[in-house]
Design a protein around this nucleic acid. Structure first.
Length: 287
DNA sequence: TTCGCACAGCCGGTTACCTCA
DNA sequence: TCTGAGGTAACCGGCTGTGCG
């Protein structure tokens, strides 16, 4: 049994270590003397290897190092492998692992708990990044739709003005007083029935109008016009997914309870908002 | 069947220690 | 040599599920 051990001299600041030799004599050794490169457990000076368990009966209570020690790379490797297989620890597996690693079952349990916590933190960070990217993409999409919408509105507005001007000029014209085929999207020519129907559709968000991409809008000035939107873009797939070694405890690949896979025309958002009683949902539509 | 208790395990949060730049 | 940041082993308190009388 190799009884040589290294542990920090708690009374000394940083610089030195206590070395417990084979004769159990405590020797103070400057840290610099113990080269990391020469130490097989380099960078892990304070490890207890499996055969160097701190619970070794050779030590009196006073000699037991109180400081916590890191696990050896070998121990960590085995624990990681075991964690990959199953991130929960059954009592039998815990005992078996502890025996194999020369650790206390309690240490194995603690390691698994901490590992799950680290895994969860990482997963949350990944989910956050994915959501952020998705959000930014949708924001761009939304803004371009707004621009497009504004452009079309102004186009409709100018055409309407032209039409009004033409009408007022043409009152004395030969077709004055005759029923004309109403131009497409000309609100002033809507029958009251059509108008009401369209308004209902616009206010309820349901398909009150046959074409879901033509909503009648009554703006603050009282003007009414069709709010023509371009056809919806291809669905934007926003799959929150990560492949990862780390899965959450319940086996999901993401900690988000929802997957919002298809988002987000303005209309879908509006409809979702109205289903929520007018609550502003931004431009997220959960599926 | 229900209740109360003890126990074990998990989780979120925290502390203490270690390592490194 | 000192210091602060980051990683991690270990702990704490609360909660939940389970077994038992």
């Amino acid at each position: 049994m190799n009884s040589s051990r290294l542990f920090l001299d708690q009374s000394a600041s940083h610089g030195s270590m206590l070395f417990l030799g084979s004769n159990n004599a405590l020797c103070q050794v400057p840290r610099s003397v113990i080269s990391m490169d020469e130490n097989p457990a380099r960078k892990r000076l304070f490890f207890a290897s499996p055969e160097e368990s701190i619970y070794n009966e050779e030590y009196s209570d006073e000699q037991l190092p109180e400081k916590k020690r890191r696990l050896t790379p070998e121990q960590v490797n085995l624990l990681e492998k075991s964690f990959e297989e199953e991130n929960k620890l059954e009592p039998e597996r815990k005992t078996e692992l502890a025996k194999k690693l020369g650790l206390q079952p309690r240490q194995v349990a603690v390691w698994f708990q901490n590992r799950r916590a680290r895994s969860k933190t990482k997963q949350l960070e990944r989910d956050f990044d994915l959501l952020k990217a998705a959000y930014e993409g949708l924001l761009l999409n939304y803004q371009s739709l707004l621009k497009e919408n504004d452009k079309l509105k102004s186009e409709v507005h100018s055409l309407t003005e032209k039409l009004h001007a033409k009408e007022s000029n043409g009152l004395e014209g030969p077709t004055s007083g005759l029923m004309q085929e109403p131009p497409l999207d000309e609100p002033s020519k809507l029958t009251q029935q059509q108008h009401n129907k369209a308004e209902d559709g616009a206010s309820s968000g349901s398909s009150g109008v046959e074409n879901p991409y033509h909503h009648l809008v009554v703006d603050s000035t009282g003007d009414s016009y069709f709010d023509c939107l371009p056809p919806p873009p291809p669905p934007c797939l926003v799959a929150v997914h990560s492949e990862e070694d780390d899965i959450s405890d319940d086996g999901r690949s993401s900690y988000f309870p929802f997957m919002f896979d298809v988002v987000a025309t303005n209309h879908q958002v509006e409809e979702a908002e109205e289903e929520e009683g007018g609550q502003d949902l931004g431009w997220w539509v959960w599926s």
